[in-house]
């Protein structure tokens, strides 16, 4: 038996909107730790890892570990029927091939339940090691989204370079080139508007902008985004989900042929 009650149902709606274009089908894993997902895009170039910790739910009952295969487009269709202020409860019985999403309006005057068919998904679970990164950049998520969108109108790839001068986002295309440098800025009153660069050593990596733009669909989940770079690892683009956990996108770099 599984019953997860999320008062801030809009979080789940936002999570779905941020992953459904990247991943078609995925297993949601439910354990005592929380509600999680790990899935790669169909090209195996990007990976998404989501964790919503059990403590973040108003009610969290998960009698035994359960993996539920869902088509994310269908799940999104169902969650779009929930109001932004609705409380969402996810329910499933052991051995059932369906999951139920229950939506309650804040005033309890409307209660809806949507039952969705589950599917068997054969997916490998990857081991992601704890790692030291050469550089970690924290910046406003809206700023990062703007940069990715702007650069994708010029080129297909972005070179992200971190030096002690700051973080530089560069692209080139048929019409020309573009460089955007963001310097460390901690003087602003609001911490979420600051840009903080931790650099152990300079790093420069090239990524497909199409994937970066897809990751920025998670912007509504967090004011800040953290970009962790190392020359030996995929970049990690992380959006913290307030009080609950995170959504992390991993993207393998492009390298010189």
């Amino acid at each position: 038996m599984l019953e997860l009650r999320l008062v801030q149902g809009s979080l789940l709606k936002k999570v779905l909107e941020s992953v459904k274009d990247l991943v078609t089908d995925a297993n949601f894993d439910c354990s005592a730790t929380g509600f999680s997902l790990q899935a790669m895009d169909s090209s195996h170039v990007a990976l998404v890892a989501l964790l919503l910790r059990s403590e973040g739910f108003e009610h969290y009952r998960c009698d035994r570990n359960l993996s539920m295969g869902m088509n994310l487009n269908n799940m999104s269709k169902m969650l779009k029927c929930a109001g932004n202020d609705d409380i969402i409860t996810i329910k499933a019985d052991d051995g059932s091939d369906t999951v139920t999403f229950m939506f309650e309006s804040p005033t309890q005057d409307k209660i809806a339940d949507f039952e969705m068919k589950l599917m068997d998904i054969d997916s490998e679970h990857l081991g992601i090691p704890e790692a030291e990164y050469h550089a970690i950049v924290r910046m406003p998520s809206a700023e990062f989204a703007r940069i990715c969108k702007d650069l994708s109108s010029i080129g297909d790839t972005v070179v992200i370079s971190v030096t002690k001068e700051g973080v530089k986002f560069s692209t080139r295309g048929d019409i020309g080139t573009a460089n955007i440098v963001c310097r460390q800025n901690t003087s602003v009153d609001k911490p979420e508007e600051s840009t903080i660069i931790e650099m152990n050593e300079p790093v420069s990596l090239t990524f497909a902008l199409r994937y970066m733009n897809s990751f920025t669909k998670a912007t509504p989940l967090a004011n800040s985004v953290t970009i962790s770079l190392s020359s030996e690892l995929p970049v990690v683009v992380e959006y913290k989900i307030a009080e609950m956990g995170y959504i992390r996108f991993y993207l393998a770099p492009k390298i010189e042929d």
Partner: peptide, 14 residues
Amino acid sequence: SCLQRKILDYFGEN
């Protein structure tokens, strides 16, 4: 030209 690496080039299966 650039070669796109894959996630599996970095992370192994659990």
